[in-house]
Design a protein around this nucleic acid. Sequence first.
DNA 1: GTCTATACTGCGATAGAC
DNA 2: GTCTATCGCAGTATAGAC
Lengths: 219, 219
Amino acid sequence: MAKPRQARLTAAEVGLLQELDDESPNLWPADLNEVARKLLTSAVRCFASNGFHGTTTRDIPGMVGLSPAALYVYFPSKEQVLFELVRTGHEKALDYVRAPEIQHLGDAAERLRVIVSRYTEWHARHHVIARVCQYDLASLSVEHYNDILELRHQTNAVFRGAVQQGVDDGTFATVDVNRVARAMLSLGIDLVRWYRRDGSETPEQLGRFNADLALKMVR
Amino acid sequence: MAKPRQARLTAAEVGLLQELDDESPNLWPADLNEVARKLLTSAVRCFASNGFHGTTTRDIPGMVGLSPAALYVYFPSKEQVLFELVRTGHEKALDYVRAPEIQHLGDAAERLRVIVSRYTEWHARHHVIARVCQYDLASLSVEHYNDILELRHQTNAVFRGAVQQGVDDGTFATVDVNRVARAMLSLGIDLVRWYRRDGSETPEQLGRFNADLALKMVR
DNA sequence: GTCTATACTGCGATAGAC
DNA sequence: GTCTATCGCAGTATAGAC
């Protein structure tokens, strides 16, 4: 006999329910109804704690005091909820590392520093939704998964471009651009596995630390 | 209407079914029955492709031509199958980074290099089981999860010890030992997210690359 | 737009024949 | 030790009242 609903609050993820930052509700598209945005925020908590398959369509509306049927007023399926979440997360992170003020930075080292620190900060500050973005991709439909892949390619291109610029203008050593960019992305992404808000590190501190490491990688 | 059983072969993970290396069947404890070991190998594929909650107790025996009931001859529950997998993966990886021949390396840089490259190689070579070890921890029972945490702490200690040694004897700069060790672990762990055997990189090449990065981090 | 009730399906696990 | 059959329940999604 298995434990009943053991996954509802696992040892690994119990803390994540308290982890959602206050900004997260403001991430969602402005054209969405307020209740729809509350449901998305609830879904982030559920998916981050128990995964897509470990979350039921009762859990998501239940956490905001609504009945199971309420979910289907705003979303056609559980998968569509996941897609909305994952798409928003990827778009916001991408926007944050290719903001206009970064494009104009001529100094390669400074540009790389800003990109790496911003990417790291975003993943720390929004680590609950970022966790869903990294861990639950496999539950998307084929079409939705391909949409997300495209956003990820664009993010990768930002990193590769920043490294390439420094190699080209002689600021950096002649490193393996793809592999080095991949390592920098790994430092940001893997943070969603272990980061907690009650730890001793702020997103800004982590951003500076990872940016320092990134610059050491290209020297 | 949702797609029926969409998760059985997702866009993201479809390739993982072909990815299991030939060595993996030899990872399992020798005291296990041959059929039990086949079931574990099947479970690795299933969990890596669809996650623990996305895998049914019919999938696991089904992939080796057995009936649903056969699973319960060898394991008391699906969760116990996961635990057996995850425990074995963590133990083997830990053994590989604290092999006796590494303990005797007096040169801090050489010792760090071997630890980082071995950790990276292990995760590349066994990236399918390593993926389950990293992504499905939250589906373990509380007791089993704590057992795994202990193994992870020991692995972390190996990395921290190697960095600390070099800081103490002056080989390395006076870096933040915990954070730097964590970054090195991230480079190995995040590899399970993207590594595929048909890529252009061998586990050994990746091991050397990550070891080079690790040494740059402590200069 | 929200609810209660429920249709329908799939799941984890077990019984009992061979 | 393997099978077929099935129990009991949980899961996604919908119907229809209010």
